[in-house]
């Protein structure tokens, strides 16, 4: 790369999304009192995400509803803000789970001999022989749709990538001089794994976490789009896009905001990943 780009700047951009998700109940809610200056600042979107208003269906952007209203007269901006909770929540949970599972299985494969190694590699092969969406969709028939189920299913498709990276590093490290020295000094197998191998093996896998986060957000949106994700009236961006398909010819403003929000979230996650792998 020609220029050094700071990881910190990109992390700050990415942090905007969890911040909106956390503050959503404050940012977008029904305003009961007469709007004071303070209330306007604290609650810029004065509509409840689930408040329907059949007299105000398909209002175009501008005026009272900044981004317009949908087929039930719900405020698009308010639903967008609350939708961040689903996307960010499921994405973060899935990425964390995938990272933990991948690290555990990958280091076990690298440290516990050829039989464990082959078993873990075979499992990663089985999972990766599948389009992730097919696996997640098939699994969605197992349990009632909820953000929790979605996160677990998405993590199930994400761990092999981490496991392969951690395994490769663990194999390389287990014959490194400092590990051999530790073994010669009489360190137990567990101590060798957790103190001398794992800390070094995790680093390259950590750099892929933003990419896994981006992929998890996309998968959650796809699942919701197919109607297999968080159930209504959840404001998930994928479901908003599926609903918008029905009224495409009359209300373009229902399509563009969730699409742009998804795009920006995934893009900023990928940019953090890029910066991380370049700065190493």
């Amino acid at each position: 790369m020609t220029r050094f780009r700071s990881v910190r700047t990109r992390l700050l951009v990415l942090a905007f999304f969890p911040l909106v998700a956390l503050l959503a109940p404050l940012l977008a809610r029904e305003r009961t009192t007469e709007p004071s200056v303070l209330a306007r600042l604290v609650t810029p979107v004065p509509f409840d995400p689930n408040a329907t208003d059949l007299d105000a269906r398909f209002r175009p952007p501008g005026g009272e509803h900044l981004l317009g209203t949908d087929d039930l007269g719900r405020d698009v901006l308010s639903r967008l803000v609350h939708g961040a909770r689903v996307s960010v929540g499921v994405g973060l949970a899935a990425a964390t789970l995938a990272f933990l599972a991948g690290t555990l299985l990958g280091s076990a494969a690298g440290a516990f001999g050829p039989r464990a190694d082959r078993a873990v590699l075979f499992a990663t092969g089985v999972v990766q022989a599948f389009p992730a969406l097919v696996l997640v969709a098939a699994g969605a028939a197992l349990a009632p749709p909820s953000p929790f189920t979605a996160a677990i299913l998405i993590a199930l498709t994400g761990w092999p990538e981490v496991a392969r990276l951690v395994r490769a590093e663990a194999l390389r490290l287990s014959i490194a001089p400092h590990v051999e020295a530790a073994r010669a000094a009489g360190a137990s197998r567990r101590r060798v794994l957790f103190v001398h191998v794992l800390p070094g093996a995790i680093a390259p896998a950590l750099a892929t976490v933003p990419y896994i986060l981006g992929g998890a957000v996309l998968l959650e949106a796809s699942l919701s789009f197919l109607g297999l994700g968080a159930p209504p009236p959840s404001a998930s961006w994928g479901r908003a896009l599926a609903d918008a398909r029905e009224s495409l010819t009359s209300a373009w403003w229902c399509v563009v905001p969730p699409a742009v929000a998804l795009f920006l979230l995934v893009l900023s996650a990928r940019k953090v990943g890029e910066a991380l792998s370049e700065s190493r």
Binding site: G214, A244, L248, V256, F263, R270, K271
Partner: peptide, 29 residues
Amino acid sequence: LDALFSLPSFALGLLLLLLFSVQLRWTPV
């Protein structure tokens, strides 16, 4: 390429539909 990697296929499809079917009326909905 960055943009294409970050936009889910169904969102991309919906945006294309908006442009070519709803606005320009070149293709069926």
